[in-house]
């Protein structure tokens, strides 16, 4: 397989890997009215990348990743409301808060595996949701946290109504995340994660510090999810309880599966396809759009286990194997 990572693959950036960035910039100029949706897609790509790191590479199955996304979102929101609306500091606060939460919870729950782990991730999300719901003085509860101002980035770039600044801001942050994930995945550390996913017992047998590796990757992933959450807070200037909801975790996993799990660009393609389809369906059939989403998922699960990138792989393989 192409997504083995580690020492196996060539870690140099191939020409085609620049394609998403070129497309993102083209979209910015070609479809200015889709820029707010674009910012949301970019944010969800960051979130999906963070999940891919632990689910796709580390094999940690979680349905509670929104806990970290939400922690970052609320940390950034509360920071903006109470301390300062400086966006870069806000991102840092969101990232650190979620990373810290990831470290603490990771230390506890990563001692388990399989279903027990799945249940614990769910429990953590529920706990965070309840805390946010009840701590109304800080979070606004079910009414959400709004009314804070986010200052211009570096004092220069104001968040405009059309969402252009927000889009480019998200794009730059995503680029940094992509670069980091790529470095991680192609490093010996990434190789050891893949090893844990593929054969946990054997990794123990060769003396690899499995638990430590998992906790580190979980913390990095949580921090990145928090970064995504903080970004969402700043670009929408609002935080609602849904960022901590179980639905968001489920939706995220669906996006990742749709794109292709365990490969960096699965996290790019999945959210894009899912959110654009959702946008189109919700526009055409505001009353029944969930039906379309459901049908799409059934089709992917039945016919394309590797997600959209899996389909593309299969097509390329077929073309190549054809006798010329």
């Amino acid at each position: 397989m192409t997504h083995a990572g580690g020492y196996v693959a060539d870690s140099r950036i191939r020409a085609i890997e620049w394609l998403p960035w070129v497309l993102a910039v083209i979209c910015f100029f070609a479809a200015p009215t889709y820029v707010p949706l674009g910012s949301y897609v970019l944010t969800m790509i960051i979130f999906a990348l963070s999940l891919d790191l632990i689910l796709g590479y580390g094999g940690i199955i979680t349905l509670g990743h929104s806990a970290y996304f939400g922690a970052g979102a609320y940390a950034a929101g509360i920071f903006a409301a109470r301390v300062t609306g400086e966006p870069l500091l806000g991102l840092l606060v969101g990232t650190l808060a979620a990373g810290l939460l990831g470290l603490i919870t990771g230390l506890i729950i990563l001692r388990t595996r399989g279903l027990a782990l799945l249940m614990l991730t769910l429990a953590i999300t529920s706990l965070c949701l309840e805390v946010a719901n009840k701590a109304t003085d800080w979070t606004g509860g079910a009414d959400g946290l709004g009314g804070f101002k986010v200052q211009p980035i570096l004092g220069l770039f104001k968040f405009d109504f059309l969402g252009k600044t927000a889009y480019l801001y998200c794009l730059v942050v995503l680029f940094l995340c992509w670069w980091l994930v790529r470095r991680l995945v192609y490093s010996p550390f990434g190789a050891s994660l893949t090893g844990v996913r593929e054969n946990n017992v054997r990794m123990h047998a060769v003396g690899a510090p499995v638990y430590q590796r998992l906790v580190i990757s979980y913390t990095i992933s949580a921090a990145m999810a928090g970064l995504g959450g903080a970004l969402l807070t700043q670009t929408t200037q609002f935080v609602g309880l849904k960022v901590l909801g179980f639905e968001l975790s489920g939706e995220l996993m669906v996006m990742l599966i749709l794109g292709g799990v365990g490969r960096i660009y699965g996290a790019f393609v999945g959210p894009l396809a899912y959110l654009v389809a959702q946008d189109y369906l919700a526009k055409q059939f505001p009353e029944y759009w969930y039906f379309g989403i459901g049908a799409m998922l059934v089709l992917v699960v039945m016919f394309a286990r590797g997600g959209i990138l899996g389909i593309i792989d299969a097509l390329i393989a077929r073309v190549r194997s054809r006798p010329s």
Partner: peptide, 17 residues
């Protein structure tokens, strides 16, 4: 448009669009 319930951030994005 469908805001799917008390979901302020989704509503805000939809309204913006």
């Amino acid at each position: 448009r469908d805001d799917t319930g008390a979901n302020p951030d989704a509503a805000k994005r939809l309204a913006q669009e």
